[in-house]
Write a protein that binds this DNA or RNA. Structure first.
Length: 362
DNA sequence: TCCAAAAAGACGATTACGTCA
DNA sequence: GGTGACGTAATCGTCTTTTTG
């Protein structure tokens, strides 16, 4: 099943599935481009490797190292995106930061890449966005859900100065320090009761990098997730949640666009319906005023399917009526939809013409 | 080969937190 | 400083698909 919607450039053929590259390359041309497709087996190819669903990054790492592929390393990264939506600004995303200077370290298809060894993309490992992997005390380490780690990220970054190329002005940094201190206070409280939900704000760099990776893959397989988590020093669960929320936002935007488009279609069709009603009334009025108007045998009214000209054929003559000369409606109110259905123009026409597509004998 | 249970992932709905006007 | 709106990280429940015994 395929469903495609393209707004902004109807002249370009709209390809579905495995066209995400094309969509990306034509981003400058498209204001909005969306594709929905389901491949042959009805779902995106699923990553086969199993991964724990946990909140402990350390466990993630150790478990991941012990995992073996159930399909002999069949770590295929799906190319066919079930949903493709490009709602991004036309301006290309600036890649001036080191985060964007290199491609994403997606594990190769053979699964040989561990993400960590495939390149750091210019990101200093464990520096800059170290949210959860900074040195933990034994107590903190025993509490993987503790928010102390996120506090440590903030505090470490700004206490340690410009770490990892995070260039923030002193004012922002000062606010962050205050925020970090607040987080520290909360963290200590939360560690005691463990009830309050923790929430961290991803840095701009992290968000930008996740955004870039989302443009390449809107879903992640476990290896990709782990690699991304390593690169950004986030927990895999955080990456997973971010992608989940990002997909939800994309879908929401997509729904909004769909609604707007359907609304415009509805308005246009309503206008067209109103116009046709008006035309019908005019025809009925004409018929009433001239009761002999449509007394021709039905078999004498024919229409050319190609040019939509109505020919009133009699035993000896054939009269064609060009639509443009007989349409009583305002041309400026013509529907923007291409009207492919045949239209009947029953006005009498004294001028006898030869139908261009048929001989008078036929 | 069939089947049920388990596991994993995705999604929708919702909550809760951080930021800003 | 308080407050509401908004964005978003995080959680929960459910469903679907795949794997496994």
């Amino acid at each position: 099943m395929e469903l495609g919607l393209s707004l902004g450039d109807a002249s370009k053929p709209f390809g579905l599935l495995a066209k995400d590259r094309e969509i990306h390359t034509t981003r400058n041309d498209l204001g909005f481009c969306m594709a929905l497709g389901i491949n042959s087996n009805g779902r995106q190819e699923q990553e086969t490797e199993k991964e724990h669903h946990d909140d402990d990054y350390a466990d993630d790492e150790s478990d991941e190292a012990l995992k073996t592929s159930r399909r002999n390393g069949d770590q295929r990264v799906s190319v066919d995106l079930p949903v493709q939506l490009d709602l991004l600004p036309r301006a290309p995303v600036p890649r001036s930061t080191p985060l964007h200077q290199q491609s994403f370290p997606w594990p190769s298809d053979n699964g040989s890449s561990d993400g960590g060894s495939s390149g750091n993309m210019g990101i200093p490992a464990a520096r800059g966005f170290d949210v959860n992997r900074l040195p933990l005390t034994a107590e903190e380490a025993s509490s993987p859900n503790s928010v102390a780690s996120s506090f440590q990220m903030d505090f470490c970054i700004y206490r340690g100065g410009n770490v990892g190329g995070n260039k923030r002005d002193s004012e922002t940094a000062g606010n962050d320090v205050v925020e970090a201190e607040r987080a520290s206070s909360r963290a200590s409280d939360e560690d005691e009761n463990g009830l309050t939900r923790k929430k961290l704000r991803l840095s701009k760099e992290q968000s930008a990098y996740l955004e870039e990776s989302f443009k390449e893959h809107n879903t992640l397989n476990p290896k990709q997730k782990l690699a991304l988590a390593k690169q950004l020093n986030l927990r895999p669960r955080q990456v997973e949640v971010w992608f989940q929320n990002r997909r939800a936002r994309t879908k929401l935007k997509q729904t909004e666009v769909d609604c707007e488009y359907l609304k415009r279609c509805c308005e246009t069709l309503t206008e067209e319906n109103r116009r046709l009603h008006k035309e019908l009334q005019e025809l009925r009025a004409l018929k009433t005023s001239n009761p002999f108007y449509m007394q021709l045998p039905a078999t004498t009214l024919t229409m050319c399917p190609s040019c939509e000209r109505v020919a009133t054929t009699s035993t000896s003559t054939s009269t064609t009526v060009p639509p443009s000369t007989t349409n009583t409606t305002d041309p400026s109110k013509a529907t923007p939809f291409p009207l492919s259905r045949p239209r009947f123009y029953p006005f009498s026409h004294t001028q006898t013409q030869t139908h261009p597509h048929r001989s008078t004998a036929s």
